[in-house]
Design a protein around this nucleic acid. Structure first.
Lengths: 147, 147
DNA sequence: TCCACATTGATGCAATTGCATCTATATAGA
DNA sequence: TCTATATAGATGCAATTGCATCAATGTGGA
């Protein structure tokens, strides 16, 4: 039912994204570092600064499932890279803040992850081509997501 | 360390592919159908025809991990969508063949999966744009992979 | 104020994944 | 032929994911 062009583009997207994720994960593992999901969360928290983020905000930003975030944050807290703070005006919630140790972890991960991005993507396409990819992929985003 | 263009393209790729997979998986689930991984295997086996495929060939084609294929095939066999046959000239191996039930399952999954591809990709970009995406993503494939 | 409903986040349990290793067969070389 | 090594596939166990549901707090309307 889909056009041949759509099928090919879909197949490429599925296959390439799987390969890239796997390569990046392998590089992190080889460096004795935690998985990509940790980076995603630490990155968002680092951007958020001292104010931190509520778990539901992390869910919006990372697209991880709620139960995944809940348990990932538990692991991150055990590792000491984030801390959980109560929220003044909402007794249900908490604020997640990255710790100094978390910033250091993020830095270490970025050294490896950034290199992967350069090798896997930056070195394969020109800046113009990368912009074209970004623009076209951007049009595939789900409408309801702010991103 | 990577260029801003590379970072943006990477981020888009990660985010969009996650969204698309999730949407397609949701559609299958909503239709009471098995996950995408089943389709991937059934598709390869259907293409392979009566001769079937060895598990290691499925690994090459799908990029799934060896232990994942091993257990996925066990589930597929229990469900009766594939059958395992001994190989004449290699006592270690087996040949996996899709069954009639498997073909029917694939057909049902494609009705849903194909619609997802159309909606998520085919309806968002023109044929020319889809070809551009395919070509650029194609250049990101890992060199050692035949694909 | 009170109640019905929504939101936030956690969790018990089953299924799947990842890792390491194992068994069995094949193959190459002494 | 015999041994060392490689390949094909399975599996025990721990970690993670998915599903369903829960507890706790917030919110809006009667």
């Amino acid at each position: 039912m889909p056009s041949p062009e759509a099928i090919t583009a879909w197949a490429r997207l599925m296959r390439v994204s799987r390969q890239l994720v796997e390569s990046a994960e392998d590089a992190l593992k080889a460096g004795g570092l935690p998985p990509l999901a940790w980076y995603d969360v630490l990155h968002e928290l680092a951007e958020a600064g001292e104010g931190g983020l509520r778990p539901f905000q992390l869910i919006e930003r990372t697209l991880f499932a709620q139960y995944n975030v809940s348990r990932l944050l538990a692991r991150l807290e055990i590792d000491g890279v984030v801390e959980k703070l109560p929220v003044a005006d909402d007794g249900r919630g908490q604020t997640i803040r990255i710790t100094a140790r978390g910033r250091e972890m993020r830095r270490q991960m970025w050294a490896v992850y950034g290199r992967s991005i350069t090798e896997l993507v930056g070195a394969k396409l020109s800046a113009d081509e990368l912009n074209i990819v970004s623009a076209l992929l951007g049009r595939l985003r789900h409408p309801t997501v702010i991103d």
